[in-house]
Simulated scan of single mutants.
Amino acid sequence: MTKWTVGDIPDQQGRTFIVTGANSGLGEVAARALGAAGATVVLACRDTAKGEAVAREIGANAQVRELDLADLSSVREFAAGVDGADVLVNNAGVMAVPLRRTADGFEMQIGTNHLGHFALTGLVLDRIRDRVVTMSSGFHVLGSIDLDDLNWQQRRYRRWAAYGQSKLANLLFTYELQRRLSRAGSTVRAVASHPGYASTNLQAHTESVQDKMMAVGNRVFAQSAQMGALPMLYAATSADVDGGSYYGPDGPFEQRGYPKVVHSNKKSMDHAVAQGLWDLSEELTGVRYA
């Protein structure tokens, strides 16, 4: 793969993208790039005021709709208003936050990063024409899926292990979704990406001394959000993307660089765990995939 940049995004005129968390960070960068390529972009975000500011700069081909992935009633309301889209980009997320619960009682990281997107995808999948792109992370290697205590109700809460579990869940979901789409004879593709180490506001919400440490890391080591968004944009727009593939940066340790096919760990390939997580996710969210 050559050094792919936003300049290589094909013309997206006539195509519609839903991008979660598009009011800031990688989602905002992606929304701007897609809008510049001619796409209609739906900025699905909790902070609609920030989303409206971004949409005004993108232009008439951008619209904002409220979506709180930590509240299944909000997810259902959003999904009910979706007429159709070519691509759903499951980008929004939280990282290493203190122990909190979503409106439905889920641990905040698995609830937002995985269960919210699982429910959203299931509710709109019959209106997605091309692909579903889900954001994971290199931190998936820190995670293990505990099907008996997915929401940290019995274990001592560890914020980074919880984040790793949610990002591992994103990959298990993507691969299992692709297997199900293939069995159903669907042409819709499920794809995953990760940004490497990108400087965004994601690192500023641990509410601990780690915020200051990561702020230094963002300035010294991280690549820009514009570079970090490239694997997601490639996964969302390239004609060469295969279902079930995973994209990240091509630099050392996948921390920075241009998009390439990357590989996830052995845990993400466990079909039995993927099936168990899928069944549990349906049970917890009440969303059954057709």
Rank of each mutant, 00 (worst) to 15 (best):
L142I: 06
F253K: 14
G105N: 02
S166Y: 06
D250Y: 13
R159N: 14
T200Q: 05
T134L: 04
T187Y: 00
R101S: 09
V191W: 09
T2L: 08
A85R: 05
D240T: 09
S224W: 12
T102L: 08
Y289T: 04
L284N: 01
A162M: 12
V29Y: 04
A169R: 14
T206A: 13
V188G: 08
L99W: 12
R131W: 04
T2Q: 10
A44L: 13
L99V: 00
D240F: 03
G196V: 14
Q154H: 15
G257F: 08
G143A: 05
V241G: 02
T40A: 10
Y175K: 11
A53W: 06
K3N: 11
M227C: 03
L181S: 10
Y246W: 01
T112M: 00
C45M: 13
A70H: 03
G59A: 08
A79N: 07
T102V: 09
L120A: 08
G122H: 05
L99K: 15
R180H: 11
D11Q: 01
Y157A: 12
Y157W: 14
V216E: 00
F78I: 03
A53Y: 04
E57W: 03
E107D: 08
I128D: 00
A225Q: 02
G59C: 06
G116L: 13
T200L: 06
L230F: 08
R180V: 11
M1C: 06
D8L: 00
T206Y: 03
T16S: 13
Y289D: 00
D240Q: 15
G217A: 10
A80L: 06
T237H: 09
V273G: 01
A229G: 14
A225M: 02
A198K: 08
G105H: 03
Q154P: 02
A235N: 07
A36Q: 14
A225P: 12
G59W: 10
A119G: 08
Y197L: 15
K50E: 02
T16K: 13
P195L: 00
A204K: 14
L69F: 07
H263G: 00
C45R: 13
D148M: 05
